[in-house]
Simulated scan of single mutants.
Amino acid sequence: MDISPGAMANLALSMQSANTNASVDTLMLRKSLNIASSEVSALMQSAPKLATSGTLGTQINTYA
């Protein structure tokens, strides 16, 4: 199977472009996950603390 040099160059360029697009997509996904993570952390920090002592809010009724 003979492939012309022009076709080989076009194939190499399209593969490079696909690789670049995948890298950009991965970078954008990583950035959006970091942003979501920081937002969830801020939300968890602002949530009221749960009860740690006593009977109110520290026990679960498992017979329900």
Rank of each mutant, 00 (worst) to 15 (best):
T26R: 00
M28P: 02
P5S: 01
A64V: 02
S17R: 02
N34S: 12
P48A: 11
I60V: 12
L33W: 04
A9Y: 05
T20V: 11
R30S: 14
M28E: 06
G54H: 07
S46R: 07
D25L: 10
I60K: 06
Q45I: 02
P5C: 02
T55W: 14
P5L: 01
S41T: 01
S46W: 03
N19A: 12
G54Q: 08
L27E: 08
N19G: 14
T26N: 04
A51G: 08
L50R: 01
T58K: 03
M15D: 03
S41K: 01
S41V: 02
L50T: 02
I3G: 01
A51E: 08
N61C: 04
M28S: 08
L29M: 14
L27V: 05
G54R: 05
Y63T: 13
A9E: 06
S41N: 07
V40N: 14
L56T: 06
A51K: 02
S17Q: 09
I60L: 15
G57C: 04
M28D: 04
Q59N: 07
N61Y: 02
G57S: 05
S41Q: 06
A18N: 07
N21M: 09
Q59A: 09
M44L: 08
T20M: 06
N61S: 03
N10W: 00
L33E: 13
N34V: 03
A7Q: 08
A18S: 10
L56V: 11
L13A: 15
S53D: 11
L43T: 01
L43H: 05
G57V: 02
M28H: 05
L56G: 12
L50E: 15
A7W: 01
T58Y: 03
K31S: 14
P48T: 00
Y63H: 11
T26E: 12
M28K: 12
Q45T: 01
L56P: 13
A64Y: 01
A47L: 11
S53F: 10
K31P: 04
I3A: 01
S41G: 11
S38Q: 13
D25S: 07
L56D: 15
Q59H: 04
A64C: 06
T55F: 15
Q16K: 03
